[in-house]
């Protein structure tokens, strides 16, 4: 009985995945591309860096990188506090 329920749920989930994979948009053609066009046009002259990905990560969305660095610092604090009783 349990195996039949698991099988039906698996088939329904798998069919959802197949349908969404068939209806997927082709690779590299987004629907709205105004933001991408702005970055590709102006990033090199505004920030002076050749790498557009780095200029987005560190200049246009620098606040996101600050949050990521804070998350890593909190992870290190958690690991050191978890193993604080270990000597040698």
């Amino acid at each position: 009985m349990k195996k039949i329920i698991f099988g039906i749920a698996f088939i329904i989930f798998f069919s959802f995945l197949i349908v969404s994979a068939i209806n997927m948009r082709t690779f590299g053609e987004p629907t709205y591309s105004e933001m991408d066009d702005y970055f590709i046009e102006n990033a090199q002259s505004e920030t002076g860096a050749n790498n557009v990905v780095t200029s987005v990560v560190f200049d246009y969305r620098g606040f996101d990188t600050l949050g990521e660095a804070t998350v890593l610092f909190t992870a290190v604090v958690g690991v050191v506090a978890l193993f604080r009783g270990v000597k040698k």
Partner: peptide
């Protein structure tokens, strides 16, 4: 020698 503050942040 380009990039402004981006190399220092890197």
């Amino acid at each position: 020698n380009t990039g402004g503050v981006i190399p220092l942040m890197n």
